[in-house]
């Protein structure tokens, strides 16, 4: 028992409890800004989803490697497709103790619901990664390629083929619309609540295809029930380790190669409240830099086949400006804008 008391869990718990004491003693020594109380990490999505997983992994890595002296506390504010979380950050002007992880709802929610916020209402800190999307079909159906599948969908007639996706007027549906535009096929889009559920609906043949993230469908892919048709990016995924018996992420063709030119990636980035100082932004950037260097983070990136594009400062802002314009155009064409 004595040995087990020294277990990692005990240490972690003590670490969290002790952190408050340590920090209150040693603040004044440093010139650069450092948080002197716990930092709230807002997740504008529910527990268990992709953004939530990433936030909790970050929290875990930060605790394990002791990258922050103060605790980082994950808080889910998922109401109104994430609007609740964004508004809480927008309304905390100058508060450096609040950071938020974003997904595509940063752009889609204000456009689709008319809730008043924009990424410019917050302070962009860093893009940590881009999440990929893949066109999946059920292996039993035997479609040889994305082209093959799209042809079948066209032949069946508009609306006969069902595309399952997460949420409504969000990334999955936008990709579906993009795919329809590029190919002329027409799907019935069926919105579900979570990505894992969507993948299983495809295995059960309740829908004909999905555009799940790699992480959401990888289990069924490896089990052979799903086929990865193409990845919605202009270059192939870089990961060459075999994931299934015969294929690696790198073996999946891009949608362009497959003859259905569509691309889309989802932002996984960090924002702070408006009006924070450069020092405060620099502090978090430093923490994330250290975090991204850990083996745990690298492993997570590879497991989920993320695109490891890291941007900060002006480049990040430029990227956001462009992405916002793209979303606006896509959603306008699809008729998704709030009336």
């Amino acid at each position: 028992m004595a040995i087990s008391m020294k277990s990692a869990f005990g240490k972690a718990l003590v670490g969290v409890m002790g952190a408050g004491l340590v920090a209150s003693v040693s603040t004044s020594a440093l010139a650069a800004w450092e948080p002197d109380k716990q930092v709230e990490f807002v997740v504008p999505a529910g527990t268990g989803g992709g953004a939530d997983q990433m936030a909790r992994l970050m929290q875990g890595i930060i605790v394990k490697h002791n990258l922050m002296k103060q605790p980082l506390v994950v808080v889910n504010k998922s109401g109104g497709a994430g609007a609740e979380g964004f508004l809480s950050v927008k309304n905390s002007k100058g508060d450096p103790y609040k950071i938020i992880i974003t997904l595509s709802n940063l752009f889609t929610t204000p456009l689709a619901t008319g809730v008043p916020f924009n990424w410019k209402d917050m302070t962009p800190v860093a893009m940590l990664a881009l999440d990929q999307f893949i066109l999946w079909t059920n292996t039993e159906k035997g479609y040889k390629s994305a082209k093959d599948y799209i042809e079948a969908a066209k032949a069946a007639g508009p609306g006969k083929f069902k595309m399952g996706g997460t949420g409504s007027k969000q990334e999955d549906q936008i990709i579906t619309v993009g795919l329809e535009k590029a190919t002329g096929a027409k799907f019935s889009y069926i919105p579900y609540k979570g990505g894992g559920e969507v993948a299983v609906q495809l295995v059960g043949n309740h829908v004909d295809s999905t555009v799940n993230n790699p992480a959401e469908a990888v289990a069924q892919w490896r089990a052979g029930s799903l086929t990865a048709q193409c990845v919605f990016d202009d270059v192939r995924l870089p990961y060459k380790t075999k994931v299934t018996a015969t294929q690696s992420w790198n073996d999946i063709p891009t949608c362009k190669e497959a003859g259905v030119p569509t691309d889309y990636q989802m932002l996984r980035g960090i924002f702070m409240a408006p009006g924070v100082t450069a020092d405060q932004i620099a502090y978090f950037n430093e923490v994330f830099k250290k975090m991204m260097a850990t083996p745990e983070w690298k492993e997570y990136m590879e497991k989920g086949a993320f695109s490891q594009t890291v941007l900060t400062g002006k480049e990040f802002a430029d990227w956001l400006t462009k992405a916002e314009a793209d979303h606006k155009q896509l959603m306008q064409e699809a008729g998704f804008l709030a009336k």
Binding site: V16, M17, P71
Partner: peptide
């Protein structure tokens, strides 16, 4: 206070 703020870190 200890339970929420310190042990479970729920603000």
């Amino acid at each position: 206070f200890f339970m929420f703020e310190v042990w479970f870190t729920i603000p």
